[in-house]
Simulated scan of single mutants.
Amino acid sequence: MEFTIRQEVMLKAIADVGKAVSASSVHPIITGIKISAGQKGLTLISSDFDIFISRFINQTIEALEIVEIGEIIVPFKHFSELFKRLPNGNVWIKSDGLSIVLKAGEIEVKWKGMNAGDFPELPEMDPDYSVSLEEKVLARLFKQTKFAVANQIRNPVLAGVNLIFKDGFLYCAATNSHRLALKKIKINEQQIEGSYIIPGTSVHELLKLLGREDRMIIIHISQQYIRFEAGGLMVYTRLISGRFPDVHQLVPDHPETEIALNAKLLLRGIERSYFLSSDSHNHNVKLEVQGPSSLMLSAAGPQLGEIIEKQPLLGSSGICRLKITMDGKYLLDALKEIEEENVKFCFYGNLKPIVIRPLENDTYLHVISQVRDY
């Protein structure tokens, strides 16, 4: 293998595929990245067995010239750190499949690689469906839901983000059984129907790659894998098998009380209350509706003290006096993802979950369980 490539082009490709590199000492082969020089261009691949990232650089661009085809695995960490320290300009790379030589100006580096034949192969896919979404739309879809994924893997399906295609809509949901984040968007492909669970860890890595460019993402879906493709970048992730909870049944209806507030003002108030309760075990924040025009926030910590804050309501309906206790972190996570100016809280009764949604946007919502306050 022999080729010449611009330092900044190779560095970006290394950074992209580095999102899937494993730190495992059990399988040292996946601590590296596979570099393949072919007739049409250069391909870099990384994998931790659950997620694969492939980055292709076309030889037609001026930044790449392939002299001889071949492939090798190089240690990601050292290879990445080296390229960051090389000067801008062309880097000449040559490999015999087991070792590699780099030259950049007066700099020459030699080191050992690993046999590329031992690297896991990209999954073979025969997609059931394909759909195209704007990259920024897809990034927002994941960002507004993935934080609600369960951290503990007692129920594997709750460790993932659920994509549901139904009636011309794509629903994205995540829940840990105490809270639910649900977002929907309209799609053009009316014929797609199905439910697929993407590991939360894969969504986390995808978000590091998405949302930076004005381009379309093509999503290919099979029974075992889902692939996200944009230009020369392809991300494969294994799907979680199992049945995700019916999220629409988790959303209550017919609220007893509804209140509307300024989202940013409420967020700052919850942040102050959460701070005061941060030295307690459960970070609880109390919300008390005191008539049709005001909401009282309060929290206390055994070491820091107590805070009480009154905020104005933009509107209210139903029962005008109630008092509930919520997990402050769950409230913060939900409010941070609401981009609109005003927010609506819906209450359904004693110890029943509440629903938080933008006041004038029905495309996404959060369901959060109340906390028993003894």
Rank of each mutant, 00 (worst) to 15 (best):
T4N: 15
V9Y: 15
L11Y: 14
K12C: 12
A15I: 10
V17M: 09
A20W: 09
V21G: 02
S22C: 11
S25T: 13
H27K: 15
T31S: 13
L42W: 10
T43E: 06
S47F: 02
I51T: 11
N58Q: 04
Q59R: 00
H78E: 14
L82Q: 05
G89W: 00
G89F: 04
V91S: 05
W92L: 10
I93R: 09
S95L: 00
S95F: 07
D96E: 06
S99L: 06
S99M: 06
K103S: 08
A104F: 08
E108V: 15
K112E: 14
A116F: 02
A116I: 02
D118A: 02
P120S: 01
E121K: 06
P123H: 03
D128K: 14
S132W: 07
E134S: 08
L138D: 02
F142G: 03
K143V: 07
T145F: 03
F147L: 03
V149I: 07
V149C: 01
V149N: 04
N151I: 11
R154Q: 10
N155A: 02
N155W: 02
P156I: 01
A159M: 02
V161M: 03
F165I: 05
K166C: 07
K166Q: 10
A174C: 02
A174T: 01
A174S: 01
S177N: 08
S177V: 05
R179C: 02
K184L: 00
E189S: 04
Q191Y: 14
Q191D: 15
E193I: 06
Y196R: 07
I198Q: 04
P199S: 03
G200D: 00
V203C: 01
V203Y: 00
V203W: 01
H204R: 13
E205C: 05
G211C: 06
M216H: 08
I217W: 11
I219F: 08
I219C: 06
Y225V: 04
F228V: 05
G231Q: 13
R238N: 13
P245L: 08
P245W: 09
D246R: 13
H248F: 14
Q249T: 14
D253S: 14
D253G: 10
L261E: 02
L261K: 05
N262S: 11
L265G: 14
L265R: 07
L265Y: 13
R268M: 13
S277E: 05
S278Q: 07
S280N: 03
H281Y: 12
N282D: 15
H283F: 05
Q290N: 10
P292G: 01
S294L: 01
L297C: 06
S298Q: 08
A300F: 07
I307E: 08
I307W: 04
I308H: 13
Q311G: 07
L313F: 14
G315C: 05
G315K: 08
S316D: 11
I319M: 03
C320P: 00
I324C: 00
M326H: 09
M326N: 08
Y330G: 14
E341Q: 12
N342T: 12
P353W: 03
R357H: 13
N361D: 09
R372T: 12
Y374V: 03
